[in-house]
Every structure is written in C-alpha cells, then in structure tokens.
Design a protein around this nucleic acid. Structure first.
Lengths: 185, 185
DNA sequence: ACCTGAACACCGTTCAAGT
DNA sequence: ACCTGAACACCGTTCAAGT
C-alpha cells in the first residue's frame, strides 16, 4: 500500500517521543517507513513543514478546560496541562516553538489559552501579547526541565530535576502573570 | 602563530552575527580560521561548549542598568536592553537559551535581572522562578520576531515585522510581569 | 501517482601521526 | 603543545528514471 502523509507524520511523532529530535531525521524516518529518503518529499515539502505537523499532533491531544470555573483558574489549569503534556516529549519545546512562530493560533489549545487570557482580564488589545508570554513561559519551563535532566544524566554530580519542584516553579511564574493580568487601577 | 581559544570563540561570534547558526558549523569555522576541523577540538571540547562561550560574549556586551532609579524601572530597562542586543544577532535566542539552561546565572546581565526582580518586590523564594519567566519572555520575543522576519522574506505576502511594534508587544508582556511581582495582598 | 537510485553538498567528532 | 589527514557515521534535498 502507498505511503500516506498521515503515516509519515505519525511515524515522525513516534520517533520524536522515543528518541528525540536528534534522531528525527528525514533519513531515519524513511528507514523506519521502509522507503527511500526521497519518497518523503512526495508527502511533505520539507522537514520544517513536517515538524509543524508533528507539533499540531502533540497539541491536539491536550484536553480543553471545563467551562464551569473562573477564567483565571481555567487559564492556570490549561497552561499546566499543556506543560505536562509537552514535558514528556523530548525536545517538545523546540518543535512547538517552531510551529508557534510560524502560526501562533493554529492549534486549539493555544487558541484556548488566548481566549482565557482575555476572559481573565487582559484588554483585547493585549490578548495576543499576554498569550505569547504564557506560551513562552510554558516552552521555557519545558526546555529548562529537559535540559537539566539531560545535564544530570551526562554529569553525575548534577542533581536530576524533580518533577514536582519543576511544576511548582512553573506555577510561581504563572501566578505572577495571572496577578498582573488586569491593567493597573 | 598558534590558534587560541579566544580566537576560536570570537570568530564563532562573528560567523553567527553575519550568517546565523546554520552557517556556524565546526567545519565552516575551521575554514574561516585556516585550520583543519580537528584543530578546533584542541581548544574546545565540543560544539555545545563553544556555543555557551558565544552566548557569554553576546551577553557581556550589554550595559548594566544605572543604580539611581526604582527597581521596577531598572528591570524594564535592562530587559529591553537585553532584548535589543539579542534581536540583532541571528538565532541569538537559541544560543542564549542553550547557555541559560546549562548555567542560568553565568552571565552578568542575567544575574542583574534576577537581582532586580527581587528588588522590585518578588519574595526571595520566588526570585529565580520569576527571573526565568523574564528571560523566557525575552528569548521568546526575540525568536518570534526573527522567525517572522524569516517567514516574510520567504513568503512574499506575509508582512515583515515592524521593530517598534515588536518592542511594544514585548513591553506589554513585561508590564504584566512587573504588575504581578508583589505577592497578592 | 508514487517511489527508487544516485548524487550533491554538507555535518560533528575522533585519532594516529606528524612537527 | 598543537595541528593535519583521513576516516566514520551521518545529514537535507533534488531529480531523472522507473512502475
């Protein structure tokens, strides 16, 4: 049976989950699919386009926040959920960061984040800017935790990051944002 | 005359400034220096170590904030200065992000940022977390602007980012952080 | 329509051997 | 002490030619 674009993308997601971005090469992906590297270029224009699709898949798995709570709580809940989903995927911050730069509102959870930022008190004119701040905080936190885990695995006398501590640190920053949301006065 | 580590690092900075991370390869750097690629490994352990040094050079050029203003103003001023310095250097966010993950307080401006966050009202226990939030906001803003510039140069019907607008958007997020700094009540 | 084979122009890193 | 030459194991992308 012929290869499909979906098959290419989902195998790429698999490779990323299991081995990280360093092993998600077009050649490695082709090997995994049992085709020649050139075959992939019939289904995707290039690696960048593929990675944007991969990011969309990762974000699509995140559940929407329940609508029956204050916007500020829903915002915190969703941000934590996005962070938790991404931190499990090696190099997720790089992949999602690339996709976010190309198309900030393409994935549903990121649109939800922007909406909740507005509902929680940000003026409409500042909605996208504050949403970007939240996204950067999530991606920065994810990248930081993963980098520290990598550093600890390489250098034996560096401490391995603790998931609970990392999550707490993230929420400290998040609460600063929520507190600052309403324009002064 | 023999090659020095400083020479290797500063030529790397040069290459980054002129052509970006894509052209900052160990082989390209060796060619620029007129040596064989293997020669570089006498002076630096690997590419990652080199990039951390490059980040330190980029950050070292940023001036410290004057001490005669309110901490919140100094914080905003320094964050804007760091952003402005980095946005001129292609892929600066990637390079500095890597270095920041490895050693968050190694560069002076980043230490100053953490100090000002504390002086501006963050509890000592939350200082590093909020400083990380500010750094992520800077790097995210820089990466975003540069990505949009690249996208516009590739795709003709995408608008080129305006430097003033980008700076304003950054300051919106920054002021949210500053407003949220003092713990509630 | 979809894929292979082969090529082009690259990578980071290692290491014996030279000076 | 410092560097070269040569190798190892890779990259992303293109494209004529095949089915």
């Amino acid at each position: 049976m012929a290869l499909s674009r979906d098959q290419v993308v989902s195998t790429a997601v698999d490779l990323l989950r299991r081995y990280g971005l360093g092993d998600l090469s077009m050649r490695r992906l082709a090997r995994e699919l049992g085709v020649a590297p050139g075959a992939l270029y019939w289904h995707v224009a290039n690696k960048q386009e593929l990675l944007v699709e991969v990011a969309d898949v990762l974000l699509a798995e995140i559940v929407s926040p329940p609508a029956d709570q204050p916007a500020a709580d829903a915002l915190v809940g969703l941000a934590v959920a996005v962070r938790e989903a991404l931190v499990k995927v090696p190099d997720a911050a790089d992949v999602v960061g690339l996709a976010y730069a190309v198309e900030p509102g393409a994935a549903r959870p990121l649109r939800d984040l922007a909406r909740l930022v507005h509902d929680a008190g940000a003026p409409a004119a500042e909605r996208d800017e504050v949403a970007a701040l939240v996204v950067h905080h999530i991606l920065g936190s994810v990248a930081g935790q993963q980098d520290r885990a990598l550093a600890a695995s390489v250098d034996a006398d560096l401490p391995a990051p603790d998931a609970t501590t990392e999550a707490k640190a993230f929420e400290v920053g998040l609460s600063v944002i929520v507190r600052g949301l309403a324009p002064s006065r």
